[in-house]
Write a protein that binds this DNA or RNA. Sequence first.
DNA 1: ATTGCTGCAAAAAATTTGCACGAAA
DNA 2: TTTCGTGCAAATTTTTTGCAGCAAT
Lengths: 129, 129
Amino acid sequence: MERETRQRTAIRSVVEMSDRPLSALEVLAAAQAQVAGLGIATVYRNLKALAESGALKVVSLAGANPRYESSRQGHHHHHFMCNACERVFDIHSCPGSVLDVAPKGFTVERHELTLYGRCKDCPPGHTPD
Amino acid sequence: MERETRQRTAIRSVVEMSDRPLSALEVLAAAQAQVAGLGIATVYRNLKALAESGALKVVSLAGANPRYESSRQGHHHHHFMCNACERVFDIHSCPGSVLDVAPKGFTVERHELTLYGRCKDCPPGHTPD
DNA sequence: ATTGCTGCAAAAAATTTGCACGAAA
DNA sequence: TTTCGTGCAAATTTTTTGCAGCAAT
């Protein structure tokens, strides 16, 4: 990752500017506003490279595609996914050590907590299939 | 799901007999011991049908393919995935209500907690890429 | 004998990779 | 000018679906 291309700059800024973790397709859509013709492969390549460089973090979720967020969201936190609009939001609280209770003989290295429900923009109702 | 076929019986029993949630491929491998020539499509079709009938439950995990477990594992619980052998185990404890803390305006319908680390059979060491 | 179920192969969906060309440095 | 990075298309991976034949009832 040596050159500062227009597409890389766009992709990085989209993630940095967002107030919530974005999926690859969300990044593509937003970045295309700055770089017309941007391809999805370039988005994936850069998201991976930026993640490896530490510039951003991969948010893996149970039952959903990964999202990407600025690594400036430094502290430990978890996520909320809306069952209606599929958007993911940060939750800036963590129950903490209570979570690391595993059976004897098991070593816990990290944990992921995902809440599912309705975000503030989506009225309650049935969950789309 | 009206007929009791050999493949359906095998798939159901493999999941019922297991002491931990299994992936589709783990189910395929185990069920092929009983039904040679069993196809992966049949495994997926039956896992889905059995899940819809309530006979088994889908365990979705952050950063891993879904696993399937007997719905007789009735009570609320969470999971542990080994970073070395990729096997998933049940954790029969849940921090509970502490987890349902979401931002104002958000409604939590359920949550998923996944612990990652080393299971009792895998010696500590580097995580395979 | 019906027709649901299965195996196989093709289709989908998400992500990765090969390649020739364009653009940073 | 050099060669990294991009766009496009083809390849992967995981799961789903179409179809003709087989088997459960």
